[in-house]
Write a protein that binds this DNA or RNA. Structure first.
Length: 770
DNA sequence: GGTTAGGCTTCG
């Protein structure tokens, strides 16, 4: 008494034994010869397994014949079926409501409940040994097939997948519907325009950016202007997916039931990686925060609507913010209380973050549907100076010609339009996070100060905070947000607009390092204590020794500290220099302490400390400076130097300096560098970056100067104090325009880690001459 | 099972 599962899922009789003949349920009665007969019906009810005795169970089910499958009588198509014993158990396990079953080996018996249940007057009893059930498992939705975009035949209705390379948000047509225009592509590299007509917005594709992936069902291929286009047709539906590789495959659709299986997931993921490898997804989205906008450059804005005011018959004002402040002065607008949705005034601080967006013509219809609090993406927005060109209610301002207003002009060119973003989108969550941490107290004096808009508009970056930056790179790029940067991080240059959150080391001397340009090693500058140790070790071994002919030995009898014999110091000028009367410029010093060397250094321009061992003069260990020039000390790289005391040769006109001497003694000179790690933030994310190659440009201070000059050190400390004051919240830190370079550190194969450096950027303070 | 639009910047 088995239950067979049929594999083709269609419920045809191809898989049941040939000796069985199909009989319509409507023809069942007690006089029917049920031998070798089979009935077919859909399970419309499946009762529980009920115990009859210790070793027998019964299960009642109702099956209904599809009247289209049988010609003739159309009544009594639903019949009670009673299954016994193991057949009942197997049926219970294997069959679900909705499955189509075929039954054989039954007998018919009069139904005592026919009047009550209004079903077939007979029941089917399956208790015999030859009783058998064949099950066609229900396939819930039909399987869709998808046509590649290079395989579209004119006038055919197809289903397709594609990567969006162009899109317009739905706009009202002259007809009854809204229209979405998009262009999609797939691995065939065909670009296919799609036109989608639907009356309701919710039925349109939910595309937010280039690179999103759409699945269109029931679109018709039509030839237009010699190109195949796709147009929505009866029963059209669409599902949209984000296009980022590795992200969750989350279908965006309004339909409550739609087919989506493992194969769909795979298709989406394949399109994602294909599109990414083809560079179809823009590395940097066209979305720009208010802090990064540039006048007269079109951009997309992700923001929250705060208030809405009708201006005139062609224009509506949307007051929006995204938690960043636009560096340019914006037009002021008085919102009339009576006609405004949302607040008509905000704290002075918040006001300084608000952009006034004028929305014209066809977009007003959409604006009508918006509510304060909505999160929006406004596509193809333009900021233009000149408040005299702003319609309606602008307040007179002293320098209003330069003040920016945002315009969403009429028309739908370049995808111009507005879209409400769903609450669960990442962009909205980021905005919410920023708004939550936003200082709300309007009496916060500091905020008032930072809220003061800058007065200048001349191209560069300006802030009211006492510092501003200038980029010296030649890149013409829109700034990106840190989250965009982190999502797409190929090597290269980027512009960002950020605040400094923290930095290390906090003490300047810890950021001063020695760098070997040959082996790229970076090391700390030895502290005075360890250098003094090397000198005192060397001076204790002092012996007057044979010196080469090119040196003249002159014993110096200085009063010595620390109980050293007073004669134990050898000043060794070069003979050549003695004759040139330039002996003050360069001496070797044998047996001196660090302290004495520094005293000499105040009077002699170049001092190379030496030590004597085995009757020979040698350079000191390279852990100590190999040269003193005034207050500056120069070090050699231990790894890359092959240091030997040799006779240096001086050209007559040659200046004796660290480079010449390093070369003469085979010392690989180390450079002073300033190395800092800065934690940046904007409204979207934080990012650790290094200040390394261009630190000197950044501070306008040389690292070598910083190693000795208090003025240079103070400048760096002052700048860091302005960028990241020890007191106050990070939100009050000044905004900086920076050029960053992203790169993979050498020797980091396989780690796939990206590092960032600040490059081509200089900080100016208000006291700097400009 | 029908019309609309059929990318390629407003002009305020």
């Amino acid at each position: 008494m088995p239950v067979y599962i049929l594999t083709d899922g269609t419920g045809t009789r191809a898989q049941i034994p040939a000796h069985l003949t199909m009989i319509s349920i409507s023809l069942i009665n007690t006089s029917t010869d049920c031998t070798n007969k089979v009935v077919k019906g859909k399970v419309i009810h499946k009762g529980p397994l009920a115990k009859l005795s210790l070793d027998n169970v019964v299960l009642k089910t109702i099956i209904q014949e599809d009247d289209a499958s049988v010609s003739g009588s159309s009544h009594n198509l639903s019949i009670n079926v009673f299954l016994f014993g193991s057949l009942a158990k197997n049926f219970n396990d294997a069959v679900s409501q909705g499955d189509v079953v075929m039954a054989s080996g039954f007998i018919a018996s009069k139904s005592p409940t026919a009047k009550k249940d209004n079903l077939h007057p007979y029941n089917l009893i399956l208790s015999r040994d030859d009783a058998c059930i064949y099950v066609s498992k229900v396939t819930k939705t039909p399987k869709y097939t998808y046509t590649r975009l290079d395989n579209l035949k004119n006038e055919s209705v197809v289903n397709v997948y594609g990567v969006v390379v162009f899109f317009k948000q739905p706009f009202q047509t002259r007809g009854t519907d809204l229209c979405s225009t998009l262009k999609i592509t797939d691995q065939s590299n065909e670009n296919i325009g799609c036109t989608i007509f639907c009356e309701k917005l919710k039925d349109h594709p939910r595309i937010f950016q280039i690179g999103d992936i759409v699945r269109l069902h029931r679109v018709k291929a039509k030839l237009f202007n010699n190109s195949i286009t796709l147009v929505s047709t009866f029963g059209f539906s669409v599902v949209t997916f984000d296009g980022s590789v590795g992200g969750a495959v989350q279908p965006r659709t309004s339909s409550k039931s739609f087919h989506f299986d493992e194969e769909d997931r795979r298709t989406v993921e394949e399109l994602r990686s294909w599109a990414t490898s083809k560079g179809l997804r823009p590395l940097v989205s066209s979305t720009v925060p208010l802090s990064g906008i540039q006048p007269n450059v079109y951009f997309d804005l992700t923001c929250q609507l705060l208030a809405k005011t009708p201006i005139d018959s062609t224009c509506t004002l949307l007051r929006v913010w995204d938690g960043t402040r636009c560096p340019y002065t914006l037009v002021e607008v008085i919102a009339e209380p009576g006609i405004t949705e949302g607040p008509t005034s905000f704290s002075k601080v918040k006001e300084s973050f608000i952009a006034n967006v004028f929305v014209y013509d066809n977009h007003m219809e959409f604006a009508k549907l918006l509510k304060p609090g909505d999160f929006l993406r406004i596509y193809n927005l333009l900021a233009t100076p000149g408040s005299n060109k702003v319609p309606g209610l602008t307040r007179s301002q002293p320098v209003e010609e330069n003040h920016l207003a945002f315009h969403l002009h009429g028309g739908t060119s370049f995808g111009r339009g507005i879209r409400v973003l769903p609450e669960n989108s990442l962009d909205v969550q980021e905005l919410k996070r920023v708004f939550e941490s936003f200082p709300e107290d309007p009496k916060d004096e500091l905020n008032e100060v930072w809220g003061t808009p800058p007065e200048s508009l001349d191209g560069g970056t300006v802030e009211g905070s006492g510092v501003f930056t200038e980029r010296s790179c030649s890149h013409q790029m829109m700034p990106v947000t840190l989250s965009q940067l982190k999502q797409n991080h190929p090597d290269g240059a980027y512009h960002v607009r950020v605040q400094l959150r923290s930095y290390e080391p906090r003490r300047l001397y810890q950021s001063l390092k020695l760098f070997c340009s040959k082996c790229s090693s970076i090391q700390d500058i030895p502290d005075d204590e360890s250098v003094a140790g090397i000198f005192s070790e060397a001076s204790q071994h002092f012996e007057t020794c044979w010196s080469p002919k090119w040196l003249e030995s002159r014993q110096a009898n200085l009063p010595r500290s620390q109980g050293f014999p007073s004669q134990a110091l050898d000043v060794l000028p070069c003979v050549q220099l003695l004759f040139q009367k330039e002996n003050k410029d360069f001496i070797f010093l044998n047996g001196s302490t660090l302290e004495e060397t520094c005293q000499f250094a105040a009077r002699v321009q170049n001092i190379v400390p030496v030590t004597s061992s085995g009757g020979h003069l040698n350079l000191l260990d390279l852990s100590a400076p190999f040269l003193f020039r005034g207050r500056k000390r120069y070090y050699g790289c231990k790894q890359c130097s092959d240091a030997v005391l040799r006779k240096p040769s001086f050209g007559r006109e040659e200046v004796i300096d660290e480079k010449l001497l390093a070369k003469a003694f085979g010392v690989q000179l180390m450079q002073f560098v300033l190395l800092m790690k800065l934690e940046l933030q904007d409204t979207t994310d934080t990012l650790d970056v290094f200040l390394m190659k261009h630190t000197e440009l950044f501070f306008s201070v040389s690292a070598e100067e910083a190693s000795i000059s208090e003025t240079a050190q103070n400048r760096i400390s002052q700048i860091m104090n302005i960028l990241c004051p020890p007191e106050g919240s990070v939100g009050q830190h000044p905004w900086l325009d920076l050029c960053l370079t992203a790169y993979r550190p050498e020797g980091d194969e396989g780690q796939n880690q990206t590092c960032y450096q600040i490059c081509n950027t200089t900080i100016f303070t208000q006291s700097d001459p400009t």
